[in-house]
Design a protein around this nucleic acid. Structure first.
Lengths: 212, 212
DNA sequence: CCTACCGATCGGTAGG
DNA sequence: CCTACCGATCGGTAGG
């Protein structure tokens, strides 16, 4: 199996020219498919049409490739969350927007999501602590929305921590099967999954709420 | 960090004696923690207090350790499903029992579940095909329950395939955080998650159903 | 159960 | 970007 880059180099008879971004892109694909420890740098190099030592012109170490991917993705999840809930008053709508954004990211950044999910535990310090701190913040924030909704009678749910874990992990699953060529768009999937989040949280329909 | 087995061998001054089951148990723990490719046979041996070549008295190859764990677990999931729904008439109750069993397994067999989730893709043929065939059967069966419930007006859900994927993956998440020492028992967690499955599927409450 | 040892492959460096 | 090469470690075998 030859990559485009490797074919390009052969067909032009010239040496392949590779960028930092190209290395990262191939690493994203292979880490997502085979896992960090299941991917050899020689495979990344082959896909780019170069020899393994040449990779070191574009990176410092294999571990840096992983930790940058995982850290940047996790940071973006947290920023996405904050942007999604910013200025939204109704707590149910805040939860919907938070999960819609999270689900959408898992459809549009599948490889990143799979790597975070499979290999976050293989990230070394100091990135590792930062990654887990960010994930905890995100989970706590989502749980906080559910607890807030319960407190004001908007949601009805006995175990908010179970609900928040379940909701978030449900979204992660999107990265496993979503395809851009499928019948459902990323937006549609994100809409459905954010609806599931409200159902799991026991959203009390307007007509059932007292005083409204 | 020394294992119990390694400590036993040293404290008795004798050679460690290891069984096939002990090898499997350590493999379960380490594969679950570090992944298949992230675990070296030397680490398994060290945990047992023996040298790497001695492992081969209890196994044929590292890959067999993985494929047996993954295949047996996946087969058990399918058997569990069939036992759970057997003889249950109401489709909502069938879904509840199916998901209760699946969730319960993820709380009581955490290591197996994590390995299937992380490393099923690293299982080699012919076990690999069998594993994926079994997983597809299970997913199709759960989706079938949801579709059946929709057809008779018991559930209200626009995208049953999204619902079934989400429900199953939500259960997998249990293996990531469940602890026997936590405040919630495995049974309680399984009850809550099977309730979420019904909510995701849009269970129509009895009082809202026409003709009842 | 062990020691001794195998070829293969790993991530990474030297030097151009 | 390359060739040449490093020490370490991998899964696994031979032979006792």
């Amino acid at each position: 199996m030859a990559s485009h880059a490797a074919q390009d180099a052969r067909s032009t008879g010239g040496r392949a020219t590779v960028s930092r971004g190209a290395v990262r892109d191939v690493a994203l694909t292979l880490f997502a498919e085979r896992g960090y420890h299941g991917t050899a740098l020689s495979q990344i190099a082959a896909e780019l049409g170069i020899r393994t030592p040449s990779l070191y012109n574009h990176m410092r170490a294999k571990q840096d490739l992983l930790s940058e991917i995982v850290l940047e993705t996790t940071e973006q999840v947290w920023l996405d969350y904050q942007a999604a809930v910013d200025g939204v008053e109704d707590v149910a709508e805040r939860l919907r927007q938070a999960i819609r954004t999270y689900a959408l990211r898992h459809a549009t950044h599948r490889r990143e999501a799979l790597i975070v999910n499979q290999d976050a535990g293989h990230v070394e310090e100091p990135a590792r602590s930062r990654v887990f701190e960010l994930r905890r913040s995100h989970e706590r924030a989502v749980r906080g929305l559910i607890e807030e909704g319960i407190a004001i009678g908007r949601f009805k749910e006995a175990t908010p921590s179970l609900a928040s874990f379940g909701i978030l992990e449900m979204c992660v699953s999107i990265a496993r099967w979503f395809s851009e060529d499928g019948v459902l768009s990323a937006e549609t999937v994100a809409d459905r999954y954010s609806e599931y989040a409200l159902r799991i949280s026991g959203l009390v329909e307007a007509e059932d709420r007292p005083g409204e």
